[in-house]
Simulated scan of single mutants.
Amino acid sequence: MQDTSLIPPPAPLQPGQILARGVCRHLRARDFATLEEYAPERGRRVDVMALGPKGEIWVIECKSGLSDYRADSKWRGYLAWADRFFWAVDVEFPAEILPADTGLIIADAYNAEMVRMGPETRLAGARRTALTRRFARTAARRLHRARDPLS
C-alpha cells in the first residue's frame, strides 16, 4: 500500500489559475480537451491549450488584472502554436484594451462565456500533427502522475 503522507497538499489556486478553471469547464462543454500551463515548446508556457473535436487547437491566455496583461510581452509568440488565440479575463477587466484581432472570453472560477471568437489562422499540417501528439503524451503523463504521484 502506498504511503500518501508523502504527497503534499495542493497549493491554493492563483487568480489566473482560477480563470483557467472556468475556461476549461466552458471548453469541456464544447467538447474540447484542455491542458493548463502547457509548454508547446521549450521556453513558452500557455495558460490553457485546447484541442477541439475536429482537431483544432486554441490557446487561451488568462489575465487576472491590468498589470498582468501589461507585463505579458510574449503572447504574440503563442500565435504560431494555435488555430485561434483568446484572452480570458474577469468581468472587471477593461476588455476594450485587448487587441481587437484576438478572441475574448469572460471567465470566473466556475464557467466562462465566449464574447469574441478569435480569428482563425490554421496551423501547418506537420506542426498540428507534432503538437497534437505532444498534447496527448502530456495529458497521459499528467493523468498517470495524478493516479500515482510517487511514480
Rank of each mutant, 00 (worst) to 15 (best):
D3P: 06
D3C: 11
T4P: 00
L6D: 07
P8G: 12
P10E: 04
A11H: 15
Q14R: 15
G16V: 01
C24H: 01
H26Q: 03
L27R: 06
L27F: 13
L27D: 05
R28T: 04
E37K: 09
P40R: 02
E41D: 10
G43R: 12
M49C: 15
L51D: 03
P53W: 00
G55Q: 08
V59N: 02
I60K: 03
C62E: 03
S64W: 08
S64Q: 14
S64F: 08
G65F: 04
Y69Q: 14
S73A: 06
W75A: 03
L79R: 08
A82V: 05
A82N: 07
W87P: 09
V89M: 04
D90V: 09
V91H: 09
E92L: 14
E92F: 12
L98M: 08
A100V: 13
D101F: 11
D101S: 10
D101T: 05
T102W: 10
A109M: 03
N111R: 10
N111H: 10
M117S: 13
G118Q: 09
R122F: 02
R127K: 13
R128C: 06
L131G: 00
T132W: 06
T132A: 08
R133F: 14
F135L: 10
R137C: 10
T138R: 13
A140K: 00
R141G: 02
L143S: 07
H144Y: 04
R145I: 01
L150H: 04
S151Q: 04
